[in-house]
């Protein structure tokens, strides 16, 4: 075993992965149900529930902004971590490149989400 031991930076990614996993487990299915089935089919909600105006108002409210940001960015961090480790499991040891693509993608998505949400104002 190598000495001195190098501290793993995994807690950062594992923490984001865990937070995203918790959030996606709690909200993922119901979000798919609402945005993917119920609203387009006009069930439960009015057919204009996700109209541009309604969604803009939602995203301009600070609470809606926080929700959209958490859902988009944490889901991405969860997916990035999962894909990175699954690649390793099936024998693709991409190393720094796989790390860059998986976590870099999540970081990019986070920045785009933050920028978009801020640019539409409050």
């Amino acid at each position: 075993m190598r000495r001195p031991l190098k501290r793993s930076n995994a807690p950062i990614f594992w923490g984001l992965f865990g937070a995203g996993g918790m959030l996606s487990a709690l909200l993922g299915p119901v979000l798919v149900l609402i945005t993917g089935l119920a609203v387009p089919l006009g069930l439960l909600f009015g057919s204009d529930a996700m109209s541009y105006q309604n969604m803009l108002a939602f995203a301009q409210n600070w609470l809606g902004k926080a929700f959209a940001f958490a859902v988009v960015s944490l889901f991405l961090w969860h997916a990035g971590h999962r894909i990175f480790h699954s690649l390793h499991d099936i024998g693709i040891h991409g190393g720094p490149l796989a790390k860059l693509v998986c976590y870099g993608g999540a970081l990019l998505g986070t920045l785009v989400a933050a920028f978009s949400l801020l640019s539409i104002g409050f």
Binding site: M1, R2, L5, K6, R7, S8, A10
Partner: peptide, 13 residues
């Protein structure tokens, strides 16, 4: 030091 090292617990999936 060992638990948190690159050889440590975070290898587990």
């Amino acid at each position: 030091e060992l638990v948190a090292a690159e050889e440590g617990v975070f290898n587990c999936t």
